[in-house]
């Protein structure tokens, strides 16, 4: 049953792959959006020549704050799981 469902999903996804924009194509829609500005301006805007660093800690710094928070949550959650409860059987 599960296998059939997964197979169905698989066929759908494979069909979808065939429909996707071509891999590595510079004209693909994914490269028309925000990329150009980042590559053009990041050094001037942020002073970092690693564009990825410029994106993660400047343009999209809010995400990275969230990311750091996720790690924080993980630590707190592990602490909570190990030491939180009263009941240890």
């Amino acid at each position: 049953m599960t296998l059939m469902v997964l197979l169905g999903i698989g066929v759908l996804l494979v069909l979808m792959v065939a429909e996707m924009p071509l891999y590595g194509d510079v004209t693909a829609p994914a490269h028309q959006g925000v990329m150009q500005k980042y590559l053009r301006d990041s050094a001037r805007d942020t002073g970092a020549i690693n564009t990825i660093a410029a994106i993660i800690i400047d343009y999209r710094a809010y995400d990275t704050l969230g990311e750091a928070t996720v790690l924080f949550v993980a630590v707190i959650a592990v602490t909570a799981a190990f030491y939180g409860g009263y009941e240890h059987e």
Binding site: M35, Y38, I52, D63, T64, E67, L71, V73
Partner: peptide
């Protein structure tokens, strides 16, 4: 560079989930 930047976040989230 945009997907790479997103993935960095994704990897960290993934390891957090794994740890918990």
């Amino acid at each position: 560079p945009v997907p790479s930047a997103l993935i960095l976040t994704g990897i960290v989230i993934s390891v957090s989930f794994t740890a918990f």
